[in-house]
Write a protein that binds this DNA or RNA. Sequence first.
DNA 1: CGTCCACAGGAATGACGGGCGG
DNA 2: CCGCCCGTCATTCCTGTGGACG
Length: 401
Amino acid sequence: MVDRLESLFERYVSESYIFTNRDVLSHDFIPSQLPHREGEILRLGSILAPSLRKMKCSNVFIYGKTGTGKTAVSKYVLSRLSKKSEEIGGNVKVCYVNCRVAGTEYRIAASICSFLGVNIPFTGLSTAEVLNRFTVRIREVKAHLITVLDEIDVLVKGYGDRLLYELTRINENLGAGRVSLIGISNDLYFKELLDPRVLSSLSEEEVVFKPYTASQLKDILLQRAKLAFKPGALTDSALNLCAALAASEHGDARRALDLLRIAGELAERDNAEKVEDRHIKEAQKRIEHDRVFEALSSLPLHSKIILHVLYSADKAGKKGVTTGELYDKYLSTCSQLGVENLTSRRVGGLLNELDMLGVVNAQIVNLGRYGRTKQIKIKVPAKILEKAFKEDLYLGSLFNS
DNA sequence: CGTCCACAGGAATGACGGGCGG
DNA sequence: CCGCCCGTCATTCCTGTGGACG
């Protein structure tokens, strides 16, 4: 026993069979070259280049599906631009904000400010005040700030285009300095939600990122694999499989890299010498499992109760529950657990959130004389749900009986 | 062909915890 | 320390609605 533990430790201390540098496969790694995106890089570069000569540059709207390199290309071009600006003593500053990560209008504004060295408290100020301080600061340092708003559709869907409107208008009463915007979205139709004035201002230029094809994905993987894996540690067929799987999921390079990294980790844990097809397949299962597990276990209590109701119905062989049935069972579950219940209005809201998350499938159906309701079905495998809820402080007890 | 079911989901409002400037 | 404002979660009240039934 001791010896086996010793050898396990020893394996971790000694060099890995598989990886030379696993970080190359992580999300935030930006390689020195981005294969199959030369066109987009040059395009974005030529749009932003005027800023180096203290000239106005157009706002840009970038769209394309997830994992098509939008973020990587933007960050790459921005970092090169800011390097060049430093070199020539320019005043171009760059700033990157992910709207989904930041969350609210306020935090996005605060986050932009922090790039200019203005510290904004967590909360306490109005968004208008934050923007005001931002404007003052821009004028002060006379900077040309190029702001990337990643996942801008999340901002607009949640809070409307007020912030964007303010940002596009800021230049109008700004003596010195300038603000240019780069909006990134993976939803092509979100433009419809924008006020025409904001839209025309934001999409002075547009860049579209097409999904990678399987062979392009293969090139990308090959490039990273050279840096990440030991020579010969990745089989050709595993690499091909990886590219093929990711290509079938809308040419998502991020997904492909995740697959490769996790497959590598699995192979390493297996003490295998090479990453093979089975590791890739296993990795795909793992990713899906983890995604769902994570989503489920971080849910608020009442969402979990709702899911448990649907889970029980599903286990009883019911195919779909109506809103009324759901709410009845929800009430009884709450009293069983000794938890205060929410109103049906709120439960409906939570249900919609679960639908958006893809955990649940809710469809409005018309039963004519018998009303208009929703048919709700659970979409996650029972096993994962059990695993995610068994540890829950409140819900755990429901599984022991 | 009108009714009326059983909800959907928008708007207004309130409670609450947190952080600000003064 | 206080009064104020914010974001978040939840409630209350409300209007809207597609189609089977009578």
